[in-house]
Computed example of a mutant assay.
Amino acid sequence: MTATFIDIWRSLRASRPAGEDQIQSIAIVYNDVETPLRLAMDASGDLHLLAPTSGLATRPLPPDYNGLRLREGLLDVGVCLDLCSPAAHEKMFAALCGELVEAIIVHGREPWSAAIAIVRAWQSAWRPLRQPMSRPVQIGLVGELLVMQTLWLPALGSEAIHLWSGPDRERHDFVSPRLHMEVKATTKSRHEHEISRVDQLKAPDDRRLLLASIQLEESAMGTQSVATLIDGVMAAIRQDPAAVDSFLTKLDGFDWSDEMRRSPDLVRFHLRDAHIFEVDEEFPQLPIDFALPNGVLSIRYTISLANLPYLDAEAVRDDIAEAMAA
């Protein structure tokens, strides 16, 4: 497919438009069937892949990088995504376009979601290496992914990905219409956790709040890491392209990249213990009417969950499912 795309762009170059805003295009044929996707070239010689969409992008588009640009555009059939590159990057761009065409035509992925995820992945391959994820970030992410894999995915399937709000810096890590869950992970030997927001242990009216307490043991021979848990979640949702795209976008918010798999900074853990607690009137927290004094901007405090009753995991999975069904 890469060679075919290059041949098409070169044929378009011979008849490229003279007008500054004009564009010359040819429909992409896949397995001898003409598709609504088009390859194009503009007056300046830049290369384009145009794909009709059902509307404008609903998420921020990736920034331009080395001339690779993802934009909103128009075709005669309506709104489209416009993926563009300078002709100097023809071979790399053709391979990228081939991956996107296959995602849309073969796997049925939503064009904007697929384009955003694929472009981000390609950009990361050409950027300087990211700074490795810090140990505290890995501990927190391992906790959230463990809860995702053991509670939310079994209860809701791939729909759970869209309820994971930890990467979005919301108050709680999982948010459904009737149930919220905050995840706290620690390498301490006790269920003790730092609370960093005054409202972190409060839920909106008419919603339950649960807290998952995850105890991890750091070990060079540990069986869990961010990498293994990402692989586990991907295996569970791979049949849902929209969930895959959403998951990859959320991971990007943690500055995750596959380079971490080979990095000595990747931390490995054993799961020591895990409990889920109901955040109710018996749960250790600040008084419900507590307010920061004037001039005090933030507060951090540590809670101990020792001797508190905890919930059965299977019952929690049922509660998660019922909270979405109601």
Rank of each mutant, 00 (worst) to 15 (best):
S219K: 12
A220F: 04
A220S: 15
M221E: 13
G222F: 04
G222P: 10
T223I: 03
Q224V: 11
S225R: 06
V226P: 12
V226D: 07
T228Y: 05
T228R: 00
T228S: 15
D231T: 07
D231Y: 01
G232R: 14
V233S: 08
V233Q: 03
A235G: 14
A235R: 13
A236Q: 06
A236N: 12
I237G: 01
I237K: 08
I237R: 06
I237T: 08
R238A: 12
Q239F: 05
Q239T: 07
Q239H: 12
D240Y: 04
D240I: 05
P241Q: 01
P241S: 05
A242I: 03
A243C: 05
A243R: 05
A243P: 01
D245C: 15
S246T: 02
F247Q: 08
L248K: 08
L248Y: 02
T249G: 14
T249R: 15
T249D: 13
K250G: 00
K250Q: 04
L251D: 07
L251Y: 14
D252H: 06
G253W: 12
G253L: 13
D255E: 10
D255C: 02
W256I: 01
W256A: 00
S257F: 00
S257R: 02
D258H: 08
E259I: 07
M260E: 01
R261I: 02
R261T: 02
R261Q: 13
R262C: 00
S263Y: 06
S263F: 02
S263T: 01
P264F: 06
D265L: 13
D265S: 15
V267E: 03
R268K: 06
H270Y: 00
H270M: 09
L271V: 05
L271T: 08
R272Y: 07
D273S: 00
D273F: 02
D273A: 06
A274Y: 04
A274M: 05
A274P: 06
H275R: 01
H275K: 03
H275I: 03
H275T: 07
I276Q: 09
I276C: 14
F277R: 12
F277W: 08
E278I: 03
E278P: 00
E278W: 02
V279Y: 01
V279H: 05
D280M: 06
D280E: 01
D280G: 10
E281T: 13
E281M: 06
F283E: 10
Q285S: 10
L286T: 15
L286K: 15
L286D: 11
P287N: 09
I288E: 00
D289I: 03
F290A: 09
F290N: 11
F290T: 14
A291N: 13
A291F: 03
L292S: 14
P293M: 11
P293G: 15
N294D: 03
G295L: 13
G295K: 11
V296Q: 01
S298W: 08
S298Q: 10
I299F: 00
R300D: 13
R300P: 09
R300H: 15
Y301W: 09
Y301M: 07
T302Q: 01
T302A: 00
A306G: 14
A306P: 11
A306E: 15
A306C: 12
N307G: 04
N307R: 07
N307S: 10
N307E: 11
N307P: 06
L308P: 13
L308E: 10
Y310R: 07
L311P: 06
D312K: 04
D312H: 01
D312N: 04
A313W: 09
A313L: 15
E314I: 10
E314C: 11
E314S: 14
A315G: 11
V316Y: 12
V316W: 04
